[in-house]
């Protein structure tokens, strides 16, 4: 029997892609020291704005990656759970995609990640509601407008020209540093070769001092990331929802 091609039904936004995906990430929670280097690196790379004390404390911080931790037990038998960097899982079957009425969050057919098309976004915030990982952040105010935040007048000099600067009313989220993917692919293509494993990494993985974040092709069995995620102690959070996350967490450490 032939498999059913879902795209025949025009299921473009919500298409359930082949199980293997393309780009993926492995995060070793045993190595993560919670140092926040990834958080800042991501913000610096992706022009993520800061929101100020009050908004940040009210659940409006714009981090694309956050480091979670919980407690177990009570003093003195208290333990902190391993730090868990939580970022967009680039689900193969993403709950955020079908609910957007404007097709502003769509699945990239070529890179097999979830795109957020800022200029198409009208700000219904349905995607963020529907994201089981709660990793989408919304531009609640014009944080990047120097008329609103005059510090931007000089700070904007560090803006990355490869990444759109978002204004109020637009949803955003981790893109797996798609600008770096494109740059690497473009360079490889210009040189007439394939992108090598480890040739580039998203900002978080590149900064991580503990080497806890590894990025690469998960459809290539020889890549470092796919070797890592085939280890026994890899988990996909909330995979019971059928989201097919592309970020694998390694828990429990070696041996």
């Amino acid at each position: 029997m032939k498999p059913i091609d879902l795209s025949l039904f025009g299921a473009k936004g919500a298409i359930v892609e082949a199980a293997e995906g393309k780009w993926g990430m492995a995060i070793d929670q045993d190595l993560c020291t919670g140092c926040q280097a990834c958080v800042v690196a991501c913000a610096m790379e992706n022009n993520v704005p800061f929101v100020g004390e009050i908004d940040a404390g009210y659940g409006r911080s714009m981090h694309w990656i956050r480091i979670e931790r919980f407690w177990e037990g009570e003093y003195p038998e208290i333990r902190m759970t391993p730090y868990r960097p939580m970022l967009c899982q680039q689900c193969g079957n993403a709950p955020c995609e079908p609910v957007c009425p404007a097709y502003a969050t769509v699945h990239s057919q070529s890179e097999r990640i979830n795109l957020q098309v800022y200029n198409r976004c009208v700000g219904t915030r349905y995607c963020a509601n529907n994201c089981p990982y709660q990793v989408r952040s919304f531009n609640w105010r014009d944080y990047t407008d120097e008329r609103v935040n005059d510090a931007i007048a000089t700070l904007k000099n560090q803006y990355n020209p490869d990444v759109t600067v978002r204004r109020r009313g637009v949803m955003e989220k981790c893109t797996f540093c798609i600008q770096r993917i494109h740059r690497a692919q473009d360079r490889a293509k210009a040189e007439g070769r394939e992108v090598q494993d480890g040739e580039f990494a998203p900002a978080c993985a590149q900064a991580c001092p503990a080497d806890a974040i590894v990025f690469g092709r998960i459809d290539d069995l020889r890549s470092r990331v796919s070797r890592l995620i085939r280890q026994k102690h890899g988990v996909h959070y909330l995979e019971e929802l059928g989201t097919q996350p592309r970020v694998t967490y390694l828990v429990g450490g070696a041996s």
Partner: peptide, 25 residues
């Protein structure tokens, strides 16, 4: 809506970008 001035994008109208509202939503 975050950008209400773009609410008309939710209407199915022909446009040169060939973009339509998402009927899955």
């Amino acid at each position: 809506m975050g950008r209400v001035w773009l609410a008309y994008w939710l209407l199915p109208y022909p446009n040169q970008r060939q973009l339509w509202p998402n009927v899955h939503s």
